[in-house]
Simulated scan of single mutants.
Amino acid sequence: MSHPAPLFQPLELPCGVILKNRIAKSAMSDSLGDGTGHPTAEQYRLYQRWAEGGLAVSIIGEVQSSPNFPEKPGNLVLDSQADLSKFQELARHGGRNGAQLWLQLGHAGALAHGPISNPKGPSALDLPGLVCAEMMLEKIRQVPQDFARTAELAKQAGFGGVQVHAAHGFLLSQFLSPLFNKRSDEYGGTITNRMRLILECIRAIREAVGPDFPIAIKLNASDQLEGGLVEDDALQVVAALDATSIDLIDISGGTYFPGAKSASDSAGRGPYFVEFAKRARKETTKPLMLTGGVKTRGQADEALSSGAVDVIGLARALALEPTLPNLWQENRMPEPSFPRFPNAAEGGITAWYTMRLTRMGADQETDDIGSLEQAIQEYEARDNIRAEIWSRHFGPPAS
């Protein structure tokens, strides 16, 4: 009897949940919320298409525990005021075909969307393009309980798990980074202190959801910024996570610090963080997921066969072809056709892919790449409309 290829073998997580294969749709900010923090019909359809496309788990980017620090006005907000039935509908659509649908627990902190927030981070910053106040100690200590409450609601709504977002320059990533975190109390200084909030979040979430509900974390290998989180410190975080009840460590990198290039916008060929994953494997027995730069079936197979990682995270590849897992299992389409955008404006490629997801949710995507400038205009116009809705619905941002 032949065994399935490594990419299509099931994986049992430490909590006992079994993923049907090793392909995950990594969290992307799809910006498809309706402006009041609730999912839309286009979002239901998008995650249904991914589930039917054959992946094991799909992760919804940046679901907020409150409306106070969103990354974008299209974020979802799952708190005690949310209409849980709309989230239940999303969980139902995204959980078809044996797929898992997880929520990524987010808090943008210093990078919160300015028009609808008063950004706050570990420390006060006044830099070109980035101004934020310092979070007070009582607000920091509230974050784990906020995340735990949203995770509990996610479980009630029928989602399969949650992912703690500690990457890409958002709040928990900011605490890890010496570039953002200049604190001198128990949350700043050494990496032991800088990771404290993350460990508190994991403990609080586990207490809220019980032992058999998956909790993942997305972690930067490095911030890819001078003065930011470096790999040696990130490895210490991985080692500390090994002693927690975490079920999956998703390795990524880069940050949305103003002016910085994200790893996915770089010109290099991926996977981007496989060498770090090999180092991380020596620090933990937890399942590892690799996100960033995996564009071909061969790259995915090689990363798994190396033993460095257990799950392959795909993002833009699945924005181009939502049935890619099924195609790979049928030994078809080893590599999607990625569009080329020479000399793209900062944030332009992200805008293009975000609008691509919008069209996928409406079953209206085409092979026509179109204009990057038009995608940016559409993206910004929609943000402006939803920011107005957000402000009317939630009121003035918290101070």
Results as ranks from 00 to 15, higher is better:
residue 5 A to D: 15
residue 6 P to M: 11
residue 7 L to C: 06
residue 13 L to V: 08
residue 15 C to D: 06
residue 17 V to A: 15
residue 19 L to E: 07
residue 22 R to S: 04
residue 27 A to D: 02
residue 30 D to R: 07
residue 31 S to F: 05
residue 35 G to F: 03
residue 37 G to T: 09
residue 40 T to V: 05
residue 40 T to N: 10
residue 47 Y to P: 04
residue 47 Y to W: 12
residue 53 G to Y: 00
residue 55 L to V: 05
residue 56 A to G: 08
residue 57 V to W: 08
residue 65 S to A: 14
residue 65 S to L: 11
residue 69 F to I: 03
residue 74 G to H: 04
residue 74 G to Q: 08
residue 75 N to T: 04
residue 78 L to H: 10
residue 80 S to P: 13
residue 82 A to I: 06
residue 89 E to N: 00
residue 91 A to V: 05
residue 93 H to M: 09
residue 93 H to N: 08
residue 95 G to D: 13
residue 95 G to W: 06
residue 97 N to T: 09
residue 99 A to C: 13
residue 102 W to N: 08
residue 112 A to M: 14
residue 112 A to H: 07
residue 114 G to H: 15
residue 115 P to S: 02
residue 117 S to A: 12
residue 123 S to G: 00
residue 126 D to N: 15
residue 134 E to C: 03
residue 135 M to C: 05
residue 136 M to Y: 08
residue 137 L to S: 14
residue 145 Q to D: 08
residue 146 D to C: 15
residue 152 E to Y: 13
residue 154 A to D: 04
residue 157 A to S: 06
residue 158 G to L: 13
residue 158 G to A: 13
residue 160 G to S: 13
residue 161 G to D: 12
residue 163 Q to R: 01
residue 164 V to N: 00
residue 165 H to K: 14
residue 168 H to L: 11
residue 169 G to N: 03
residue 174 Q to S: 06
residue 174 Q to G: 05
residue 176 L to G: 01
residue 177 S to L: 08
residue 177 S to F: 03
residue 183 R to F: 07
residue 183 R to G: 09
residue 188 G to W: 03
residue 190 T to I: 11
residue 193 N to K: 13
residue 196 R to H: 10
residue 201 C to V: 15
residue 203 R to F: 00
residue 206 R to L: 01
residue 207 E to T: 04
residue 209 V to Q: 02
residue 212 D to N: 09
residue 214 P to V: 05
residue 214 P to S: 07
residue 216 A to L: 00
residue 217 I to R: 09
residue 224 Q to R: 14
residue 229 L to M: 02
residue 230 V to W: 00
residue 231 E to N: 09
residue 231 E to S: 14
residue 232 D to P: 03
residue 233 D to T: 14
residue 234 A to N: 07
residue 247 D to C: 05
residue 247 D to Y: 10
residue 249 I to Q: 13
residue 254 G to Y: 01
residue 256 Y to M: 15
residue 257 F to I: 09
residue 258 P to K: 09
residue 259 G to P: 09
residue 260 A to N: 14
residue 266 S to G: 15
residue 266 S to C: 14
residue 269 R to E: 14
residue 270 G to F: 06
residue 270 G to K: 12
residue 274 V to L: 15
residue 277 A to M: 10
residue 277 A to L: 07
residue 279 R to F: 11
residue 283 E to G: 04
residue 284 T to C: 06
residue 284 T to P: 01
residue 289 M to F: 05
residue 295 K to S: 13
residue 297 R to A: 12
residue 306 S to H: 02
residue 311 V to H: 07
residue 314 L to V: 03
residue 316 R to Y: 12
residue 316 R to G: 05
residue 319 A to L: 15
residue 321 E to S: 06
residue 322 P to Y: 14
residue 324 L to R: 03
residue 325 P to S: 04
residue 326 N to H: 10
residue 326 N to F: 00
residue 331 N to G: 02
residue 332 R to P: 02
residue 335 E to D: 10
residue 336 P to F: 05
residue 337 S to P: 01
residue 337 S to I: 11
residue 346 E to W: 06
residue 350 T to W: 11
residue 352 W to Q: 09
residue 353 Y to G: 00
residue 353 Y to A: 00
residue 356 R to A: 01
residue 359 R to A: 15
residue 359 R to N: 10
residue 359 R to P: 10
residue 360 M to Y: 00
residue 361 G to H: 08
residue 363 D to I: 06
residue 363 D to S: 15
residue 366 T to C: 07
residue 368 D to N: 01
residue 369 I to W: 00
residue 374 Q to T: 10
residue 377 Q to L: 14
residue 382 R to L: 14
residue 387 A to Y: 01
residue 388 E to Q: 06
residue 394 F to T: 05
residue 396 P to I: 10
residue 397 P to E: 12
